[in-house]
Amino acid sequence: MTAQDFQAEKAIVRAHNTAIDAAGVEDVAGAMAVRVAPSYHWRGMHPFDALEGSDAVATKFWGPLKRAMGPLQRRPDIFMAGQNWVDDFATTWVVEMGHLMGLWETPWLGLGPSNRIAFLRYVEFHRVEDGRIAETATYLDVLGLLNQAGYQPLPPQTGASILSPGPRTHDGLLTDVHDPAEGRATLDLINAMVSDLVGGGVESPGDHMAKFWTSDMCWFGPAGIGASAFYRGYQRGHSQPFEEGLEYVRHNGHQCRIGEGNFGGFFGYPSLTVKNSGGYMGLPASDREADMRIVDLYRREGNKLTENWIFIDILHFLKMQGLDVLARLREYPRL
């Protein structure tokens, strides 16, 4: 791992996002083409999935979203960069997490709008190479947006339904140069925690929590699962239902894992394969294998993790079990 300040890569991503935000519905492809590679690869969540090239991403994702909710305000809470541990630090990635805010006034995904202010939670991982963005992974909390419009397609969640906050310390926008030793300390802690978690079948017993997490830790999960705080709240709101409801099949690894300053994280596309053998999320049990596309971002405090932001492609996870949530909502819309 070589010392690198990531300022050039961060500048490219910030300019890219600024151009997308300023572009009209018909101009997004051109705005994207300025800074993405000709062979640009985009990983999205259901129903977008993987797309190739800026034209496809603009046509299928950004254009329809802007048409429904634009103009969009980008409200980032975390911005960081680092070299990728997964490929032995050969590639550089820039990560941004926050909310896209708009006024949802026309249909999106075939579903009627709320006609109110709406927040779409997002995180993006961008691989920057030779002055261009070569690939992007975009994770969204689509269910959270639908909940704001009155759609409630799933049983009650075990965690709280909230507008996920940024870091408690309000220092997540790492636009300046940071001590690489701090980023490596964060990455080493994340690696140790993940190794321990996977080694235990992705369960979080008390000794795991005490070793890697502060007692006042916060876990900001996606809609359908919800948010939890502190050991007892995390156990009640997430880890216990997760462990009792799902049968662990395998960990598929990650495409990117980085750390900068006190922040770090990863994405897997997919990360886990499980079976919903115990009726997870209040849904009927199933013996089908289903994938979880997951993002985890973390804030480190000293030698422990203290905040965790999670994105899971729940719509994809459920569709693999035979439940197409979006299709059902289009067939049986809100009353």
Rank of each mutant, 00 (worst) to 15 (best):
L189Q: 10
A149D: 14
P38Y: 08
P270D: 13
M320S: 10
I133G: 11
P284Y: 10
L100C: 03
V25L: 00
G166I: 03
V202P: 01
L173E: 00
N276E: 11
W93Y: 14
L65S: 01
M101S: 04
V94Y: 07
F212R: 06
L329N: 09
T138A: 13
V95L: 03
G63F: 00
A181E: 08
P270E: 13
L163W: 01
M69C: 04
A118R: 02
A149N: 14
R75F: 00
D77A: 04
A37V: 08
P76R: 05
A285E: 07
R35S: 14
V123S: 02
D87E: 11
R116N: 09
V177D: 11
I312V: 15
G53Y: 09
D77Q: 06
R35L: 09
E247G: 15
D55H: 15
A192Y: 02
F61E: 00
L283A: 09
T169W: 00
H316I: 01
E129P: 05
R121T: 06
A11T: 15
H99N: 07
R43K: 08
G70T: 01
C218N: 03
V198L: 07
F89Y: 15
K60A: 05
L120C: 07
D188Y: 06
R116Q: 12
M292W: 05
Y234M: 07
G268T: 13
S286Q: 06
H316F: 12
V95C: 03
E307Q: 14
G63M: 00
M281G: 09
V202T: 09
W93I: 02
M320C: 10
H41P: 00
K304W: 09
I12G: 09
Y298G: 05
I312A: 10
E105Y: 02
A31F: 04
Q7Y: 06
I133K: 12
L72M: 04
L65E: 00
E124R: 08
V142T: 15
N115R: 15
A160M: 04
I162C: 08
L189T: 14
M1W: 10
V274E: 04
S195Q: 04
W93Q: 03
V325C: 11
E289V: 07
D207H: 13
L326I: 15
M320P: 02
L329V: 10
N147K: 13
R116V: 03
L111V: 12
L100P: 01
A285P: 11
M281Y: 09
G302E: 11
L111A: 11
E105I: 02
A23R: 00
V95W: 01
G278F: 10
M32W: 00
V86T: 14
A185N: 12
E182Q: 12
H316W: 11
N191V: 14
F220C: 01
L143N: 15
W219P: 07
W213G: 05
E129G: 06
G24N: 02
R293M: 04
